[in-house]
Computed example of a mutant assay.
Amino acid sequence: MLNIADVLHRWCRAARPFALATVVDVSGSAPLPIGTSVAVDEEGNAVGSISGGCVEGAVYELCHQVLRDRGAAQRAWFGYSDDDAFAVGLTCGGELDVLIQRIDPTEQPHLTAAFAEVAGGRPAAVAQIVDGPDHLLGATMSVLGDDRVAHGTMDSGPVYRAVTDQTRALMRMGRTGRAAAGGGDDCREPLSVLVHVRAARPRMLIFGAVDFAAALSQAGAFLGFRVTVCDARPVFATTARFPHADEVIADWPHRYLEHTEVDERTAICVLTHDAKFDIPLLRVALATPAAYIGAMGSRRTHHERLHLLMQAGLTEDQLARLRSPIGLDLGARTPQETAVSITAEIIAHTNLGTGLPLSSTSGPIHRPAVRERAVMK
């Protein structure tokens, strides 16, 4: 639902009831990930998309029905064979599981608060029960970026506290995902919760103010990263040379990295290609929780770098995290081609992709989004 938060925020502020249809599970090559929503208000205005095919028409009608009947939330399943899937926008036999529910902003002010945070560029998360007893289906609660919790329509108690904890955890990771709850003494019926997350942009930290860094900063910005370029030489570390970076820092790379924010979504790209910068920087980088750490250089440079890092006390497990030489084998030569090679490896690493040509692989093209599934007790 947070994919259309800006419009939903306006509807909530105007106290306009609407029906919300949300993709809660996908299989095959469904075109959009879980958490994607369509909303329809009582005047027939629609926003969002979940397939791009005639599924949209069926979902639109279901939204009208939910609004008209003012009934409980309901589930709808759309699955098609390979022969006719293309016509309805679900290629290669994709399947969608959709939850449709009526939202009255006057009864769920916490959603107005969550949509306002997202519309203002601030992080927020909304937890939504998508499987469980009928009376709980569609129940929601929100967590805002400053860790405030808006209770919403979800029951209080141990399950509520567990959902809150998992929502906060997924929000810290910046991931929309499913989690299980209940099934114990406190709530005997199992529940499935979809946590919608809109977090701050992940960071890309580029070290080395070189031409390759200029191209990579542009590619990183295009992919939605908050890009920082850092170099110890002030004459090279200038905003004029890196107009696509969010910030340009003149400082020793390892010193800057020691004092900046790094989380499980951060990509660290070491392009300095100089041992006096690389070794102290990588010692710090490989001790962080960064999702991706890559370093530029030849294979000979890589082997020498590994030797120096081992002498510096790094373990084999730490060194195994290092992507070097950086990037996928695309035959890249120019800075722009190299930037594509590096970002392609980051995408493949993040999404557990193979990096192989799709023509040489089998199975679904679109994989489910990488997400945390946790059992909450």
Rank of each mutant, 00 (worst) to 15 (best):
His9Cys: 06
His9Ser: 05
Trp11Asp: 06
Ala19Lys: 00
Thr22Gly: 08
Val23Cys: 11
Pro33Tyr: 11
Ile34Glu: 03
Gly35Ser: 00
Val40Phe: 01
Asp41His: 04
Asp41Arg: 04
Glu42Asp: 04
Glu43Pro: 00
Asn45Cys: 06
Ser49Gly: 07
Ser51Tyr: 03
Val59Thr: 08
Glu61Arg: 11
Cys63Pro: 00
Gln65Asp: 15
Asp69Ser: 12
Arg70Thr: 12
Trp77Tyr: 13
Ser81His: 15
Ser81Tyr: 14
Ala87Lys: 11
Val98Phe: 02
Ile100Gly: 01
Ile103Tyr: 02
Asp104Glu: 14
Asp104Leu: 04
Thr106Val: 15
Gln108Trp: 04
Gln108Pro: 01
His110Tyr: 09
Phe115Arg: 00
Ala116Leu: 12
Val126Ile: 07
Gln128Phe: 02
Ile129Lys: 01
Val130Pro: 00
Asp134Gly: 13
Leu137Arg: 08
Ala139Asp: 06
Thr140Met: 05
Met141Asp: 07
Val143Lys: 03
Asp146Gly: 08
Arg148Ala: 07
Asp155Lys: 13
Tyr160Phe: 07
Arg161Cys: 13
Leu170Ala: 12
Arg172Val: 06
Met173Glu: 14
Thr176Glu: 10
Gly177Ile: 11
Arg178Met: 12
Cys187Asp: 12
Cys187Met: 15
Arg188His: 10
Leu191His: 11
Leu205Asn: 10
Val210Tyr: 00
Ala214Arg: 13
Ser217Val: 03
Ala219Arg: 06
Thr228Cys: 13
Phe242Trp: 07
Asp246Lys: 14
Asp246Gly: 15
Ile249Asn: 09
Ile249Tyr: 06
Ile249Gln: 13
Ile249Val: 15
Asp251Tyr: 02
Trp252Ala: 09
Pro253Val: 10
Pro253Cys: 10
Tyr256Cys: 15
Glu261Leu: 13
Asp263Gln: 11
Val270Glu: 06
Val270Trp: 06
Leu271His: 01
Thr272Met: 12
His273Tyr: 14
Ala275Phe: 13
Asp278Phe: 00
Leu282Cys: 08
Arg283Leu: 10
Ala285Gln: 12
Ala285Arg: 10
Ala287Arg: 15
Ala287Tyr: 03
Pro289Asn: 09
Ile293Met: 07
Ile293Thr: 02
Gly297Ala: 00
Gly297Leu: 05
Arg300Gln: 04
Thr301Val: 07
Thr301Leu: 06
His303Gly: 08
Glu304Pro: 09
Glu304Val: 15
Arg305Glu: 10
His307Thr: 09
Gly313Thr: 01
Gly313Trp: 02
Thr315Trp: 08
Asp317Tyr: 10
Arg323Lys: 03
Ala332Asn: 07
Arg333Lys: 07
Arg333Thr: 06
Thr338Ser: 03
Val340Ile: 06
Ala344Ile: 08
Glu345Met: 03
Thr354Asp: 02
Leu356Lys: 10
Ser360His: 11
Ser362Val: 13
Ser362Tyr: 07
Gly363Met: 05
Arg371Leu: 13
Glu372Trp: 09
Ala374Lys: 11
Met376Pro: 13
